[in-house]
């Protein structure tokens, strides 16, 4: 039985493998890559279908077994994330509570001077 926390870790490991390759991989390829974790292939298929539902993975049904690839690169996802965080999309940032707002370099210099840094 795989718990929720490990399920999250597993999703991350599988995405890392898919991001690392240009090729698409089958569940068995992934099972082999993660051999040291001794995972059942059904577990891997479960995680893959979760990732597919979330839109992180695309499945090619042309051949059997089905082959999986990352829907976007790691860098693209990271850019999306930072776009939301830094306020490029103002409505979306509404869900976040950031430590501080944006300040221009000149304003920052003024503030630093005020603090005697």
């Amino acid at each position: 039985m795989v718990g929720m926390a490990t399920l999250g870790e597993l999703e991350r490991s599988i995405m890392e493998l898919l991001w690392a390759t240009d090729d698409n991989l089958s569940a068995y390829d992934l099972q082999e890559e993660l051999a040291d974790r001794k995972l059942a292939s059904t577990t891997i298929l479960t995680v893959l279908s979760r990732l597919e539902n979330k839109g992180f993975v695309t499945r090619s049904r042309d051949a059997r077994p089905h082959r999986y690839s990352a829907a976007a690169t790691r860098e693209e996802h990271m850019a999306d994330l930072m776009h939301e965080v830094l306020g490029g999309a103002s409505d979306r940032t509404a869900v976040l509570e950031r430590f501080v707002g944006q300040v221009s370099p000149e304003e920052a210099a003024t503030l630093r001077r005020l603090l005697g840094q």
């Binding site: 830094l86 306020g87 490029g88 103002s90 409505d91 430590f99 501080v100 707002g101 944006q102 300040v103 221009s104 370099p105 920052a108 210099a109 503030l111 630093r112 603090l115 840094q117």
Partner: peptide, 19 residues
């Protein structure tokens, strides 16, 4: 210091109406 450092490190986002 933390308020200033974090505020200073961020680049201003692209100019959008809301931003």
């Amino acid at each position: 210091r933390a308020i200033v450092l974090v505020g200073a490190g961020q680049d201003r986002p692209l100019a959008e109406p809301e931003a």
